[in-house]
Simulated assay, not measured.
Amino acid sequence: MMTNLFSSFDPSTNFNLSLNWMSIFLGLLLIPPMFWVIPSRINLLWIKIITTLHKEFKILMGNNNTQGSTLFFVSLFSFILFNNFLGLFPYIFTSTSHMTLTLALALPLWLSFMIYGWINNTIHMFAHLVPQGTPPVLMPFMVCIETVSNIIRPGTLAVRLSANMIAGHLLMTLLGNTGPAISLMFTNFLIITQILLLILESAVSIIQSYVFAVLSTLYSSEVN
């Protein structure tokens, strides 16, 4: 029995072990067979997804893209997707619901983009602070607004991913806890609702990993 609603997200709750963070590496176990066996339909589907993402990220990064940089963002998408999906299985720790992991992904990315941009393209970065066509009176305010929006980017990336993963899991936990207290007729509705929520959470897992990777690509394209 859970002592707290949020104890399902506690990495030390289950079996009193601190090995729950090892769930981050479970997704890596799904990758090696692709290199050793004859490609199945699932492998071909995954290759198709990676190729599509590569083409899209290449367009987002523009003409100044560095060779192999799309591979990094496709890997980031795959890493978050595996962790989001594995978190939907029972007794597997959802690492992406913690700011510890999401900030550890977003903050170094943003810092590296900013350091690279301000060192190599200083004039270009200053130009980004004032959007084109801004009236001269509003320019000081626009600089403040653009600076704040730039600084909070890693926070918004991290919070968006973790909050979406927490919200769905909490809703499923709340509905699941009401199961023993309701009648058999309402239990059928509850099961259907839980199945629909699980489908929604699967979609959210894909969408949030895609959003994280796309926004990271857009942020990197701005510093070139």
Rank of each mutant, 00 (worst) to 15 (best):
N65P: 07
L175D: 04
M172L: 09
A163Y: 05
I123C: 02
S216H: 02
W21M: 04
F35E: 08
V137S: 15
M99E: 04
M172T: 13
P90N: 03
I195C: 12
L138I: 10
V37S: 10
A106W: 05
V159C: 02
S205T: 01
S209L: 07
D10L: 07
S40T: 15
L5Y: 12
N120G: 04
F212E: 05
V130I: 15
I24A: 06
L19E: 14
M172V: 03
I152W: 08
I152Q: 10
S40Y: 10
L157E: 00
E201M: 15
C144M: 12
L26G: 10
H54T: 15
T96C: 00
L76G: 03
T193E: 08
G68K: 01
L29M: 15
I195A: 15
S7I: 03
R153F: 13
S97L: 03
S209W: 11
F93V: 03
T3M: 08
N4I: 03
L60A: 01
A104V: 06
F85L: 10
G68C: 10
L171P: 02
V37I: 14
M22Y: 13
T102N: 06
R153I: 05
R160W: 12
S7E: 14
S209E: 04
M61R: 08
L71I: 10
A167T: 06
T134W: 04
S12V: 12
G179D: 08
L103Q: 01
I206R: 08
I191A: 13
I192P: 08
I145P: 05
V211K: 00
E222Y: 09
I38E: 14
L171S: 09
L157W: 08
T13R: 11
F212T: 03
K55D: 11
M114A: 15
F89N: 02
N16S: 13
W110M: 02
Y91C: 00
M1A: 05
H169L: 01
P39Y: 13
M22K: 08
S183W: 14
E56K: 08
F72R: 08
L5K: 00
V159A: 04
S7D: 15
S75D: 05
I166M: 09
G176V: 03
S216V: 00
A158W: 05
H128F: 04
M125S: 13
R153H: 09
T70Y: 00
N64A: 05
G176F: 11
D10I: 01
I182S: 07
H124Y: 09
S12W: 15
M142S: 13
K55W: 06
N83A: 05
P32M: 00
E56N: 11
S149H: 03
F141V: 11
R41A: 12
S202C: 12
F141R: 07
N164Y: 12
S216M: 01
S221Q: 08
